[in-house]
């Protein structure tokens, strides 16, 4: 698999801390078309370290699009322009010789920049802690086949459960809303029989935690769905809104 390297100009966001003012720094790169964009960063950082300069801080881990650690805004798109892929799955062959690429962190009020391209996404964990579970203790479960779940339901629940918690939906949204993220978890449990006992309490608690963590409101622009690396559907938000409405009625004993 030997092909000619492609030459690119990179404009990469550098920022010392949440409070510091950031700016784009320009780099030149010559990279194999088979490399991933993060492998290009690895090479770039290796060269910077060799020169005794601070490497560009960015986060990544599994490099298989499943852990949700990586997340760059590439030419204005969270995780790049290619649909249904995470940053780590983006390959340099999708760029043209001589192209200039702009790389920025996920930007949102709820995601303060820690350094360069690394942001703090703790708000997403706080939302999950508010209700993203079924309340039962280890050891108390009935036999797994005692709960029958249709293939279709299990499949729909998994469609929602595939969310990798990267926060691209927040970065894509003009309001910095994390509703796609919240609705994915709410939907997974709303669809499954195991989630029924706490269904309405859960949606209340998770939506409240969302709002309190500094995320904005959903105004149905669908930008989240368009940028989601796992293709989580906006229909989850509709399902969540329905449950939220019902839960409000239940709270008022209507």
């Amino acid at each position: 698999m030997k092909e000619q390297n492609i030459n690119l100009t990179l404009k990469i966001w550098r920022q010392e801390s949440a409070k510091a003012k950031g700016n784009f720094e320009e780099f030149k790169a010559s990279v194999s078309p088979h490399s991933s964009i993060l492998e290009m960063f690895d090479e770039l950082n290796n060269n910077l370290e060799k020169e005794g300069k601070d490497p560009i801080v960015f986060e990544s881990d599994c490099r298989e699009g499943i852990c949700g650690t990586c997340g760059l805004v590439i030419n204005g798109h969270p995780h790049g322009e290619k649909k249904k892929t995470a940053t780590c799955q983006m390959h340099m062959r999708s760029f043209k010789e001589g192209e200039t690429i702009y790389i920025e962190p996920f930007r949102a009020k709820a995601f303060p920049v820690l350094r360069d391209l690394m942001v703090d996404r703790e708000g997403l964990d706080i939302i999950q802690q508010a209700g993203g579970y079924t309340s039962f203790n280890t050891g108390s479960a009935p036999d797994a086949n005692a709960i029958l779940i249709s293939k279709e339901t299990a499949s729909l629940a998994l469609d929602a459960a595939e969310c990798i918690g990267c926060g691209a939906c927040v970065a894509a949204c003009k309001n910095s809303s994390a509703m796609l993220f919240v609705s994915a978890k709410v939907s997974q449990f709303a669809l499954l029989p195991q989630g029924q006992p706490e269904r309405y309490e859960r949606v209340q608690n998770m939506v409240i935690a969302h709002d309190e963590s500094g995320f904005g409101s959903c105004t149905n622009t669908y930008a989240c769905e368009a940028e989601c690396p796992k293709g989580i559907s906006i229909s989850n938000i509709a399902r969540m809104n329905r449950d939220y409405f019902v839960s409000n009625l239940k709270l008022q004993n209507v």
């Binding site: 009935p142 709960i147 779940i149 339901t153 629940a157 459960a161 499954l192």
Partner: peptide
Amino acid sequence: QCVAQGVPFAR
């Protein structure tokens, strides 16, 4: 345990 947690295994 995992089914009770709502893990959507294949069916």
